[in-house]
């Protein structure tokens, strides 16, 4: 085990490393042992300075304020009303009128489109193949997606034939209890794609 692996494992444990190998390295490497001792001190410092939680009275006051804000019908609870400078008021009115006109225009064109309104037209557009030609066959309908809920496993869809999919789940043991292997794989691949 290299020193860099030791400090990395101590900083962000994965559980992948054998604890005996870690202990063995720490026993033999004064530098890493000193690092580990300081890290333990940091943890102790963190514990010694944990914030004191507010009293019930304080929380009651906070809740009263939240509740009052939620009751205000004139103000969106989650957005501060911006202060409008006089000079910007005209511009904002212009923008508002223009936006209303845009909405009217868009609704007009939208309802005049052949076949009438198609709310999810963009979503369900056929997949554009590489050279732009339409797909010759579609094996599965978009409207009937295969529902997967891996719950810690990896889902594999084995393609037996076009339209025939066999779903299997492969359990991935996670020693640390902190790292979801499927999630880790996704992040690894995402990172690999960006390199």
């Amino acid at each position: 085990m290299r020193c860099v692996d030791v400090t990395r494992e101590l900083s962000a444990p994965t559980g992948d490393r054998q604890s005996s190998a870690l202990a063995q390295h720490l026993a033999a490497c004064p530098q890493c042992a000193a690092w580990a001792a300081r890290d333990m001190k940091l943890n102790q410092l963190w514990d010694a300075t944990r914030p004191v939680e507010p009293s019930t009275e304080v929380w009651n006051e906070v809740w009263t304020e939240i509740s009052a804000r939620l009751d205000r019908p004139d103000v969106l609870p989650f957005r501060e009303a911006p202060t409008i400078r006089p000079g910007r008021r005209i511009l904002m009115i212009t923008l508002g009128v223009a936006q209303a006109a845009a909405i009217l225009l868009a609704v007009f064109f939208f309802t005049r489109a052949p076949g009438g309104p198609q709310p999810d037209a963009t979503v369900h557009q056929p997949v554009r193949p590489v050279d732009g030609a339409p797909p010759s066959s579609v094996a599965q309908s978009d409207s009937d997606p295969l529902d997967i809920d891996p719950d810690g496993s990896l889902v594999v869809l084995r393609i037996e034939a076009p339209g025939k999919v066999e779903k299997t789940e492969v359990a991935l043991n996670d020693n640390s209890g902190r790292v979801d292997s499927g999630f880790e794989m996704l992040n690894f691949l995402e990172s690999a794609a960006k390199q």
Partner: peptide
């Protein structure tokens, strides 16, 4: 990404150690 979380944790611990006279 989860890898970023782990990298940040490692970086943070190294930096905190260097900033603090533990």
């Amino acid at each position: 990404p989860i890898g970023t979380v782990m990298s940040r944790l490692s970086y943070a611990r190294h930096k905190l150690q260097s900033y603090l006279d533990l």
